[in-house]
């Protein structure tokens, strides 16, 4: 592990440890009851003792998040490909893509949940609707933002439309794509959690949002915090995964990944 990586890990971890220590100290020092704010230690104990329920819920939320991220990525990229083929298509359809972005998911989730019987499918659709916009928007921008200098050479070589797409537009769009993926990974998690809240379904298909709802009804605040910790952990894990993926694919050539060489 080089010094830069160490610093990148050490700094946030140190800040995290310090904040948790302050939190623990304040709760103990001021004798804050657990039903108002539980201490980190109480939260951890609750997390461990309820792991069978929370672990299952985590897997369910993670499943919805990953499914919707996958669907949003595939659909978003396909839509962006279609958009860059023709300006008219983009002009005609882009306002409807913006509509997806500006419509609050809590407003349309109940409809989707009523229309679709299968909970997993309904939640995945809701979450996909939240996550897809940055993929379409960034990918379209990336596919269009080919440097004139680079496209001139392809033009002079009489490159085909397919060569232009695969050898020039797609690699040029990769930095935008990975930036979108980082945003979409967070949004798909938010979408999954919000959709679960709206659905409020019980039974075996329950995720972390349902656990938070239940804990709230029972005033079991430590359990609520434990579920929140797990949601945050999923979010941070996904972001780190997308960053790693971006580093692996474009790290060797894209300037944003080259800072350490300067």
């Amino acid at each position: 592990m080089n010094r830069r990586t160490l610093v990148h890990m050490l700094f946030p971890v140190t800040i995290g440890v310090v904040l948790v220590a302050i939190w623990q100290y304040l709760v103990v020092a001021f004798k804050v009851p657990a039903y108002i704010v539980p201490s980190p230690w109480a939260t951890l104990k609750t997390l461990v003792s309820n792991w069978s329920v929370l672990g299952h819920a985590t897997l369910f939320t993670l499943e919805i998040t990953l499914l919707s991220l996958l669907v949003a990525t595939v659909l978003g990229v396909i839509i962006a490909f279609i958009f860059v083929q023709n300006r008219m298509i983009e002009t005609a359809f882009f306002p409807y893509v913006v509509l997806l972005q500006v419509t609050p998911i809590v407003a349309i989730a109940p409809l989707i949940i009523i229309w679709i019987n299968n909970t997993v499918v309904a939640l995945t659709i809701c979450s996909t609707l939240v996550a897809i916009f940055p993929i379409i928007s960034n990918m379209t921008l990336g596919l269009r933002s080919v440097s004139p200098g680079l496209s001139a050479y392809f033009k002079l070589q009489n490159a085909s439309r397919l060569q232009l797409l695969l050898r020039l537009r797609v690699p040029s769009a990769l930095p935008n794509f990975f930036a979108a993926l980082r945003i979409a990974s967070g949004l798909s998690l938010i979408g999954a959690v919000v959709a679960e809240f709206v659905a409020g379904t019980g039974g075996s298909n329950t995720g972390l949002a349902y656990q938070i709802l239940q804990a709230g009804y029972q005033l079991n605040i430590p359990l609520m915090f434990a579920a929140l910790v797990l949601i945050s952990a999923i979010g941070i894990g996904l972001f780190a995964l997308m960053t790693l993926l971006s580093k692996l694919v474009i790290g060797r050539w894209h300037e944003t990944e080259q800072e350490h060489r300067q």
């Binding site: 200098g149 050479y153 002079l156």
Partner: peptide, 17 residues
């Protein structure tokens, strides 16, 4: 001229990937 021309532009000369 098309097809018989080698071109070297002012900037963005190389494909970074």
């Amino acid at each position: 001229i098309a097809g018989r021309l080698a071109w070297m532009g002012q900037k963005d000369l190389l494909y970074p990937w």
